[in-house]
Simulated assay, not measured.
Amino acid sequence: MAEDGLSKASILDAAEGALRKFGLAKTNMSDVARALGVSHAALYRHYENKAALRLAVVERWMGGVFEPLGAVLAEEAPPETKLYRWLSALREFKRERARQDPELFAMYAALVAETAGALEGHARLLAEQLAGIIEAGAASGAFVCKDARQAAAGVFYAFTRFHHAAHAAEWDTPESEAGFEAVWQLTLRGLGAGS
């Protein structure tokens, strides 16, 4: 590939391939450059260092969740249904990633764990979507809450066990299914649904 035709997307594709081939600890900028047929200096014009490239890989991977979540947001449904489907879509997206490619998922989990700030922007966007659902529910009278953003933060953290990579080993257990439903019922009560 010519260095002048190098794109961030092609760099991220190559970085994922290198991570898959060499593993997290052994992958470096030279491996990515070699896969692209460019000098490693060309990569530094797009990413200042290996940490920045890793963060971009994680952000792109996590950004894939916004397609199924956006589809839920676009649905015409009661707020309780929309909230449940949104939480379920987030959970299912993460579970499918873990099932379909456990090795790469493990690398992503490690990248998230060691990359400071990797989740901040992602979590903020998720919280904004949740707040929107809760605000609409409060406006319609389906939910009773004074601060939709605070409620969204509480709901997000209450469901962390069902979508955060640190809990992936628990996701396909019967206890996880029952736990999800139990937290959902508690959430409905906390939001004053049906009050």
Rank of each mutant, 00 (worst) to 15 (best):
M1R: 11
E3R: 15
D4F: 09
D4S: 14
A9C: 02
S10M: 11
I11V: 15
I11P: 04
D13H: 04
A14T: 10
A14M: 08
A15Y: 03
G17M: 09
A18T: 10
L19R: 00
R20L: 13
K21P: 02
G23N: 08
G23R: 10
G23A: 10
L24T: 09
L24N: 07
A25T: 12
N28E: 14
D31N: 15
L36F: 06
G37V: 07
A41S: 15
A41Q: 14
A41K: 12
Y44G: 08
Y44F: 11
R45D: 07
Y47D: 09
N49K: 05
K50W: 07
K50D: 08
A52N: 06
L53H: 07
L55C: 03
L55K: 13
A56Y: 03
V57N: 05
V58C: 09
V58I: 15
V58Q: 01
E59G: 03
W61R: 10
G64N: 04
G64D: 06
E67A: 13
L69T: 12
L69A: 08
G70Q: 10
L73S: 10
L73G: 05
E75Y: 02
E75H: 06
E76N: 10
A77W: 01
P79M: 09
S88I: 04
S88A: 13
L90I: 06
E92R: 07
E92F: 01
F93G: 06
K94P: 00
R95S: 09
E96M: 05
A98L: 03
R99G: 05
D101Y: 00
D101L: 02
P102S: 09
L104R: 10
L104Q: 11
L104F: 14
F105H: 06
M107I: 15
T115V: 01
T115L: 02
T115Q: 00
A118L: 01
L119Y: 01
E120H: 03
G121T: 07
R124D: 15
L125Y: 04
L125P: 01
A131P: 03
G132Y: 00
I133T: 03
I133W: 01
I134K: 00
I134F: 07
I134C: 06
E135R: 15
E135K: 14
A136V: 04
A136T: 03
A138C: 09
A138Q: 11
A139N: 07
A139C: 03
S140Y: 04
G141T: 07
A142L: 08
F143R: 10
F143D: 12
F143C: 12
V144R: 14
V144P: 00
V144E: 13
V144T: 13
C145G: 10
K146W: 04
K146I: 05
K146G: 14
K146L: 11
D147N: 15
D147M: 10
R149K: 15
R149P: 07
R149M: 13
Q150W: 09
Q150V: 15
Q150C: 12
A151Y: 00
A152N: 12
A152Q: 10
G154C: 12
V155D: 13
Y157A: 14
A158I: 04
T160N: 09
F162S: 11
F162H: 13
H163P: 03
A165S: 14
A165E: 14
A168E: 13
E170G: 02
T173V: 04
E177A: 11
E177R: 10
A178I: 02
E181Y: 01
A182F: 01
A182V: 02
A182W: 00
V183G: 04
Q185D: 11
Q185P: 01
L186C: 08
L188F: 02
R189N: 03
G194P: 02
